Simulated scan of single mutants.
Amino acid sequence: MDALIILCVILFWFLVVLGLRNWSAYIKEKRELLVHVSDVTLVDAFEKKEKKRKQQAGLIDKVTKFADEFADLGQRINFFSENLDVADWLKKSGNRYELTVARFQGIKMMFLTAGFFLGMILFILGFPFSEFGIVLIPLLGYFLPIMLIKQQVKQRQEALRQDLPDFLDTISTSLQAGVSLDQALREVIRFFDGPLREEFTRFIQEIDLGVQREQAYRNLLERNNNQQFQQLIKSLLQGMKLGVPVAQTFKVQAEDMRELRQEQVKELAAKASPKVTLVTTFIVAPVSILMVAGLMILNMIYGDNSIMNLF
């Protein structure tokens, strides 16, 4: 009887291990099949991310629809946020939440009003320094959307700069293989995410809608102020007029951008050295001296040869 029980236990664990092995093989084959189907059917690898962004944009639209009531007032009170400047910021930030200039101005005034009421509530409740909050919190509410949109512009242009060399190398390889520029862009942008994908997707859509290629290039220039990206687009414009091969343009631009990136890294490293020296001189060194001096003083007072033993 004992031998039968032991045999059943061994058989049970053997079947468990066999099941886990088959389940692992199934998961692996399923993953490979999904990748193959994605490649064959041109399924977008970032489709879920795009849907999530659209959901966020829809949520922001519902939350900020009340800002339209403040839009007229916001366009009149436009300190540090002229309508032309706001339109330029929204364009260069990618306008992820699909805001209009009027709504942005309304959000600014809505936050200012909400900050004023919050400051009043804190003042009535008697919070410390609440008398300053009545002025500072509304100002923070006014400038917060401006600071956020400017930060988005900066981050987007930086992301554009980071992805450009790899993007250009891939496009150059595709062009040298005999693929047309438009087809190469359609294929390559599927494997990139962020500003590059957004900009060249819009570029392709404009070409499909009949916009002249030169005008589509100029629209790219207007939407981005990154120096390397503008240099690329201007080179494409010049090459289109002079008849320079596009593949050669992309290859040269990729090499130049990598060299420029290396120089920028060296420049940042050179700038970091004085900062480290400054911190060491004014923070680390004084603290170390104070610690050593403190230990010496304590040793003089409480040590074996302390001053107290002389009395």
Rank of each mutant, 00 (worst) to 15 (best):
K251Y: 06
K275R: 13
L242W: 00
T281V: 15
R258V: 11
V284R: 06
E255R: 09
Q231P: 01
S288V: 15
R261I: 11
E259M: 13
Q248N: 08
V287Q: 11
F282I: 14
N225W: 01
V279L: 15
R258F: 08
K234S: 05
D256K: 09
Q238L: 02
A270D: 07
K251G: 09
T277M: 15
A270G: 12
V279Q: 11
L236N: 06
Q227D: 04
N226Y: 05
A269G: 13
V265F: 14
G243K: 02
P245I: 01
Q231I: 02
D256S: 11
S288F: 14
S235L: 11
Q231A: 13
Q230E: 10
I233P: 08
A247Q: 06
Q262W: 12
K266T: 10
K275V: 15
V279K: 14
A269E: 12
Q248S: 09
G243M: 02
T281I: 15
K266A: 15
V252T: 11
M240C: 01
S273G: 07
F250C: 06
L237G: 06
L232W: 05
L268W: 11
V279Y: 15
F229I: 04
Q228F: 09
K234A: 05
R258N: 06
A272Y: 08
V276N: 13
G243V: 00
K241E: 02
L232N: 06
Q248D: 08
P286D: 10
A272K: 14
V265M: 07
E263Y: 13
L237C: 00
A247N: 07
Q262I: 09
S235T: 14
Q238V: 03
L236A: 01
Q238Y: 01
R258D: 07
P245N: 02
F250S: 03
I283P: 09
L242M: 05
R261G: 07
E255V: 11
V244D: 00
P245Y: 03
Q227V: 13
Q230D: 03
Q227E: 09
S288G: 14
Q230L: 03
A254V: 07
